[in-house]
Design a protein around this nucleic acid. Structure first.
Length: 565
RNA sequence: UGGGGCGUCGCCAAGCGGUAAGGCACCGGACUUUGGAUCCGGCAUUCGUAGGUUCGAAUCCUACCGCCCCAGCCA
């Protein structure tokens, strides 16, 4: 895209796009250049998706470009595994950085030169204070800090020491390079921040070439400048760092001047979106891995069956602003349903089966009935579904003593079997424990296809599966990982873990076409929800994940009738 | 008690001096071979609070209140 698409520019409206629009109109910038700058120390989650959609979306909308740059300045936490996963996830989300894949580590030599530049101009010094001493000298939020005794070293000595740091003459923590700004600043980030630290660690990309590494604060803004980023978009917690970034840019011979704008990070109810916590949940085994379908990671959402365009739609709907937020899960669910309703083919699957025998249907016979694949898609076509004397229906679709407003099957009551026939319940068979094990019903041959020739009405249509050709399967239903809207508010977030966040159903019965479902294909189990095949599936033993349930107005009626919870 | 932000419907979020968009959720109702989808309608006399300026304020001013971030050689 070379020319900005007016519709795309006009569409999402937020304060950052307003600024960019103004910059463009005023001629302050020609081509808009943004970047998504992850640290490769964990997997991407839906909070990152908000940032990715913002940065890549702006580039798309304004006819600019968006770089993918890894901020890989801390080798003790970063790994190639994460680099690979992040690239794959951004692509899966639907974005393309073209040739613009960069690493802060690509700029290590340049950053080092700039550090010497600061030293030469008396704007940085090597400090021998220990980490604890530096903390002590920094002062507190309300009291100013004190100058380090090493602050007044000569340029020559600083240069020599810094070169020795690079050469490996000192051990970890022995010395750091600090900017010489103002130990009395009200902004703690300006109290001589550390620019370089000694880290005898090998880096995923530069190996053992370096034993000193720039801090994020020293690397980030300059990396943006090197790449010609016009709008450096980041989250609110970096707002107080902006004066430092501006100070560095002003005091260094950089070729461009990025402007930073901050927005509020995403928070979601009943979930945790911090890398530290997500790593802990994986490492401590509270989930099965980064791609556990309950995880808010992109890989988790993907395995759960959430399509990338639903996540993009979610990002669009939540918007971009600066106020703290706590987005409801219903917002994401709605996006998923919207996308999947249009796309997912419908199938019938009985999750908690109860047997139905049609007493007047000939034993041993079977017929094929035509079912519509997707009522939302006129070109979706139809498929054949086998029907016979013995069927399964959902246990909850039958009530021996029907509650008010329950209009499914009950003794003596007639309902429709979707795409099949009207049936009437004649008898209920129970086991010794009083549990219903089988329903004896009759069917009306005149209602084949579900259309009664006499126009009589029935209040419910049930899904079903013919017993003889049913495919047994395992189905996993997921709830929120946490019971609290804000996990960890005032206590350990792990105390809020939902012990029943997954329900595994075995012995589910599926219509035969589901045996050959391709991976990564969303389907709707009629009347129940959207599902996808889990990688745990084996030939003949499919495993399905429920992505999200359908809206359920019967459940609402029940909830109203049964107060509590 | 320092510095930086933010407070508009249950949840997001427009609004930028001219008299409160939209989405989600919720509540009706229509339609329906998914109690799904779709459609129609309802849902902030009020914008953290209190003053002030103005013909007119969510938008300007003042004071107060509340919430978030910052004291990593993490990002």
């Amino acid at each position: 895209m070379s020319v900005a698409d007016p519709a795309a520019i006009a569409e999402p409206r937020d304060f950052i796009r307003d600024i960019i629009r103004a910059d463009l109109e005023a001629g302050r910038v020609g081509t808009v250049v943004t970047r998504f700058p992850p640290e490769p120390n964990g997997y991407l989650h839906i909070g990152h998706a908000k940032s990715i959609c913002l940065n890549f979306g702006i580039a798309e909308g304004f006819g600019g470009r968006c770089h993918l740059r890894f901020d890989d300045t801390n080798p003790v936490k970063e790994e190639q595994e994460y680099i690979d996963a992040i690239e794959a996830d951004v692509r899966w989300l639907g974005f393309d950085w073209g040739p613009h894949l960069y690493f802060a580590s690509d700029y290590f030599e340049q950053l080092y030169d700039w550090a010497e530049h600061l030293i030469r101009h008396g704007l940085a010094y090597v400090d021998d204070l220990s980490a604890a001493e530096i903390r002590d000298y920094r002062g507190t939020l309300t009291e100013p800090g004190r100058d380090s005794p090493w602050r007044t070293r000569s340029v020559a000595e600083n240069l020599q020491l810094f070169r020795q740091m690079r050469a490996g003459a000192f051990e970890n923590g022995a010395k750091v390079l600090r900017a010489k700004i103002d130990m009395g600043s009200g902004n703690i980030n300006l109290r001589d921040p550390v620019l370089y630290r000694i880290l005898h660690a090998s880096h995923p990309r530069t190996g053992d070439a370096w034993c000193i590494y720039p801090t994020y604060d020293f690397a980030h803004g300059q990396s943006d400048a090197i790449e010609g980023i016009t709008h450096s978009i980041c989250t609110l917690e970096f707002e107080a760092h902006r004066p430092l970034y501006d100070w560095l840019i002003e005091n260094l011979p950089v070729s461009s001047r990025p402007r930073q704008y901050e927005f509020a990070r995403l928070n979601m109810e009943y979930t945790v979106l911090s890398k530290r916590r997500l790593i802990q949940m994986v490492e401590q085994g509270h989930v099965r891995g980064w791609d556990d379908p309950r995880m808010p990671t992109l890989q988790g959402l993907r395995r759960r069956g959430v399509p990338p365009d639903a996540i993009r739609e979610f990002a669009r709907r939540i918007g971009v602003a600066k106020s703290d937020n706590l987005v409801e899960v219903a917002m994401l669910d709605s996006c998923v349903r919207e996308v999947l309703n249009r796309r997912a083919e419908r199938r019938m699957a009985v999750l908690d089966p109860i047997k139905v025998v049609l007493e007047n249907y000939p034993a041993g016979e079977m017929e094929m009935l035509s079912a519509i694949n997707n009522p939302e898609d006129p070109d979706g076509g139809t498929r054949e579904v086998p029907f016979g004397r013995e069927l399964y229906i959902e246990r909850e679709d039958f009530m021996e003593e029907p509650a008010k407003k329950f209009f499914r099957l009950a003794p003596g009551r007639e309902v429709r079997l979707r795409y099949a026939y009207f049936i009437t319940c004649r008898d209920v068979i129970k086991d010794a424990a009083g549990e219903v094990v089988e329903l004896r019903c009759t069917y009306d041959p005149a209602t084949r296809g579900g259309d009664p020739p006499d126009g009589r009405k029935v209040k419910a249509t049930l899904h079903w599966v013919a017993a003889a050709s049913a495919v047994p399967a395992e189905v996993r239903l997921y709830e929120q990982l946490f019971n609290a809207r804000e996990p960890g508010a005032g206590h350990d977030y792990l105390d809020d873990l939902n012990p029943s966040s997954v329900t595994v159903l075995t012995g589910c019965q599926l219509e035969p076409s589901l045996a050959a479902l391709p991976a990564d294909t969303a389907v709707q189990f009629e009347r129940q929800g959207y599902f996808c095949l889990d990688p745990d599936s084996r030939p003949g033993a499919p495993v399905f994940n429920r992505t999200v349930g359908l809206r359920d107005s019967w459940a609402k009626i029940q909830a109203r009738a049964t107060p509590g919870r």
